[in-house]
Simulated assay, not measured.
Amino acid sequence: MGKRIDKERNKSDKKQWKLFASGVLYLLPALIVISVFLFYPMLKTLYFSFFVTTAGGVTQDFVGAGHYTRLLQSGAFQTSMWATFKFVLYTVPTGIVFALFLAVIANEKLKGMAFFRVIFSSTLGVSVAAGATIWLFLFHPTLGVLNNILAVFGIDGINWLTSSDWALVSVAITTIWMNIGFNFIVLLGGLQNIPEELYESSRIDGAGYWHQLFKITLPMLSPTLFFVSVVTLINSFQTFGQIDILTGGGPSNSTNLIVYSIYREAFYNGRFGYASAQAIVLFLIILIFTVLQFKVGERKVHYQ
């Protein structure tokens, strides 16, 4: 009897190993792609951060944690980090609230609302280069629409992209506009998945619109809001294209966010080791914020 049980157990183990091997075989192409384009660059970046490199990216002298020590003492890096945190603060809450506002409006069952849904989500089809170029013309000090509107009300024009007080705000406005389409579509999908029976029951109990919004809509939408907040935060930390086109990190490094700083150190100054150290610091910052969001924010998420 014992031998029979052992035999059946061995057959079961062999079957499990065959299933595991089959699964790995099917996943192998994806694992190769991920290893080549994700894991290898990450390990290479970590390796570079401990060396001084040539302009061609060849490692020379081992400096250990020297680059990281230099970063902590660098005024330029501190300015870059401060600008990055301000940019994230400008774009993430504002972008989510604005997209939620549009999604709530578009979720209303009114005639012609499908047209506005297309309009609200249209920025999703605009590339970073095209979107930044559009706003480059809007921010023009003399020909731009924004300053012409201000002139109608007798307000002096603003140097949107050449003033250190307004440049970061201008890039933030552009980023919010560019991300609104994605956030809108995701939030609208979340709204449309809320069961209508909940609203019908609340109306029977005499609940008004605002009571339904804060007691039903937002709690039921919390998983979608949590997802949007995590993605938007990560995207904000990784913003690059609009900065390169609109301001080039200026004026006075007021828009020199950490990703753009990494780009300049690597491809302008040829200091790949120093740039890699900044990239590792950015990775750790994003990781910490993401973990905090999951630890703190997910507690308030209402899963059905």
Score class of each variant (00 low, 15 high):
residue 4 R to N: 12
residue 7 K to F: 11
residue 7 K to A: 15
residue 8 E to P: 00
residue 11 K to W: 13
residue 15 K to F: 12
residue 17 W to E: 14
residue 18 K to R: 15
residue 20 F to P: 01
residue 21 A to G: 10
residue 22 S to R: 12
residue 24 V to P: 05
residue 25 L to S: 12
residue 26 Y to V: 13
residue 35 S to W: 12
residue 36 V to H: 09
residue 37 F to T: 08
residue 38 L to C: 12
residue 39 F to R: 07
residue 41 P to F: 02
residue 42 M to V: 09
residue 43 L to I: 14
residue 45 T to K: 02
residue 45 T to R: 02
residue 46 L to H: 00
residue 47 Y to V: 04
residue 50 F to G: 14
residue 51 F to E: 05
residue 52 V to Q: 12
residue 56 G to W: 12
residue 57 G to F: 04
residue 57 G to I: 05
residue 58 V to A: 15
residue 62 F to H: 12
residue 62 F to S: 10
residue 64 G to Y: 07
residue 65 A to P: 02
residue 65 A to S: 13
residue 66 G to R: 05
residue 67 H to S: 03
residue 68 Y to R: 03
residue 71 L to S: 04
residue 73 Q to G: 08
residue 74 S to F: 09
residue 76 A to Q: 12
residue 76 A to C: 05
residue 77 F to W: 13
residue 78 Q to K: 15
residue 84 T to L: 08
residue 86 K to Y: 08
residue 90 Y to D: 01
residue 90 Y to W: 10
residue 91 T to Y: 01
residue 93 P to S: 04
residue 93 P to D: 05
residue 97 V to Q: 03
residue 99 A to T: 01
residue 99 A to H: 08
residue 103 A to T: 11
residue 106 A to L: 09
residue 111 K to T: 11
residue 114 A to Q: 13
residue 114 A to K: 11
residue 114 A to E: 12
residue 114 A to F: 10
residue 116 F to K: 03
residue 120 F to C: 02
residue 121 S to M: 07
residue 122 S to F: 12
residue 126 V to F: 07
residue 127 S to I: 06
residue 136 L to Y: 10
residue 137 F to M: 12
residue 141 P to H: 03
residue 143 L to C: 01
residue 145 V to G: 02
residue 146 L to H: 03
residue 147 N to D: 08
residue 149 I to T: 05
residue 154 G to C: 06
residue 154 G to D: 09
residue 154 G to T: 09
residue 155 I to D: 08
residue 157 G to P: 06
residue 162 T to K: 10
residue 163 S to N: 13
residue 163 S to Q: 04
residue 164 S to H: 14
residue 166 W to I: 02
residue 166 W to L: 10
residue 171 V to Y: 04
residue 176 I to Y: 00
residue 177 W to C: 05
residue 179 N to G: 14
residue 181 G to Y: 07
residue 182 F to N: 04
residue 187 L to Y: 00
residue 187 L to R: 02
residue 192 Q to G: 09
residue 201 S to Y: 06
residue 204 I to G: 04
residue 204 I to K: 06
residue 209 Y to R: 14
residue 209 Y to H: 13
residue 217 T to N: 09
residue 222 S to V: 06
residue 222 S to T: 14
residue 225 L to G: 01
residue 226 F to E: 03
residue 227 F to Y: 06
residue 229 S to E: 03
residue 231 V to A: 07
residue 232 T to Y: 04
residue 234 I to L: 10
residue 234 I to F: 11
residue 236 S to F: 02
residue 240 F to C: 08
residue 242 Q to R: 13
residue 242 Q to A: 08
residue 242 Q to K: 11
residue 242 Q to S: 11
residue 247 T to F: 01
residue 254 S to C: 04
residue 255 T to N: 11
residue 256 N to S: 07
residue 264 R to I: 05
residue 271 R to V: 00
residue 272 F to D: 01
residue 272 F to P: 03
residue 279 A to N: 05
residue 289 F to A: 14
residue 291 V to W: 11
residue 291 V to M: 15
residue 293 Q to N: 14
residue 299 R to E: 11
residue 300 K to G: 11
residue 301 V to R: 08
residue 301 V to E: 07
